[in-house]
Design a protein around this nucleic acid. Sequence first.
RNA 1: GCGUCGGUGGCAGAGUGGUCAAUUGCAGGAGACUGUAAAUCUCCCGGACAUAGUCCUACGUAGGUUCGAACCCUACCCGGCGCA
Length: 427
Amino acid sequence: MAALTFSITARDAASKARTGVLTTAHGAIQTPAFVPVGTKAGVKGVLPSALRALGAQVVLANTYHLYLQPGAQVVQDAGGLGAFMGWQNEDTTTGPTITDSGGFQVFSLGAGFDRKVVRVTEEEKDTSTEGVSMYDEDVQSQHGQLAIIDEEGVSFTSHLDGTLHRFTPERSVELQHQLGADIFFAFDECTSQTEPYEYQKEAMYRTHRWADRSLKAHRQNIDASRTQAIYGIGQGGQFPDLRRESTRAIAEMGFDGFGLGGSFTKTNGESMLPLALSVLDELPETMPVHGLGVGEPGDLLEAIAAGVDTFDCVAPTRLGRHGTVYTRRGPVHLKKEQYCNDFTPLSIYGFTKSIYSDAAGSASGVEGFTLAYVSHLLRANEMLGQIIASTHNLGFIIGLVDGARSAIEKGTFASYREDFVREYYRS
RNA sequence: GCGUCGGUGGCAGAGUGGUCAAUUGCAGGAGACUGUAAAUCUCCCGGACAUAGUCCUACGUAGGUUCGAACCCUACCCGGCGCA
């Protein structure tokens, strides 16, 4: 039996949205599904039991972080990522997990800014030429780290202790085998949307070569291939021809699924998500698609309409920790003065009904708190405030995606999306 | 009562003749956050015009010295500590 099967169970008439079942070695995932991010094998501020209660079916962790701490061996010795973090299905068997390859860190560790970094002395600065970037002083003072990319892989210094490390596609796959997630990603280079065409092209081809090497490394491990599935990641940045070429190239390699790569954060108000979605017709229809880092509510619905099946994003927990909660009427920053005395229940703010079910709300323990109370906790720096906000946000996003799934099944996806977007982005 | 140290913006606490409307932290206000180096980051935070800039009032109170004082001198008020 294949490590992963995907069967489409319903299709939307007016869009490419579909529902399906992803069957992994640790259980089934009803799609579309939102995947909470627990980078270091822990979703920040939210217990697995609460995630489960909110309807989460699978969680995602990161290879780079777990490799540095506590080490992939520890996770393997624990019985794999799901067992290590106590992530369980309803029947208490270990649940499905995903790992990211560490490719995003190539971008976030500073490579996106300092691709061609060289250290230069004061005198050399004057004679340096274009194409050789200065070491970015802001990045240096903030992080003191850098990553350098070459054809074989990426060298980087640990953000924990400054030690030098190296990832190659083969190494990333090996580590992900040790981590043991049901689905993992090929090692890629995530680029910034601001990169020029030539660089995007160069990085894209390198990512394709790395994808090929990742896939080969995986197939060479027979045991792992039987239980773990690998997704290839398409890149191409903000350029239509590259994006299309990348999607096609990855599609032809024979991966178990496709990861929509890149950084979809808005740059100058522009997101390249629509473009990335527009070329998904290059994929076999039955190939499951994962939206990496797609989590903005409108983006989720847009991606679902384009046929994307799973998503992960740090936004719900990060925003929650930072004091912002999702509501049907848009995000609300609870630390604002105006919420100090607002005793509306958080879960139904501005509405008579929560986006997540009463059962999910009460089982996760997040229902019933007022804006004023959570606002106070956040202001007082009580961790419970962050816990409640993070849990609520995850419930909101999972509920939004679950709602889309039901709507697709019922044939009401178009109005579901329209209604939500109208309210959420009303201003 | 005597001695001594100290009184600075909401709080804590720098500054000790001009470069001070006054470093910094906290608190407060606003904003950001999309495969988590993020319980983080950015901006504002005496007043008035409300950006820049300009002006005004400010470093316990009242005087004084000086071209110029949060900073030096005198008195007073208040607080900590020590001795009675």
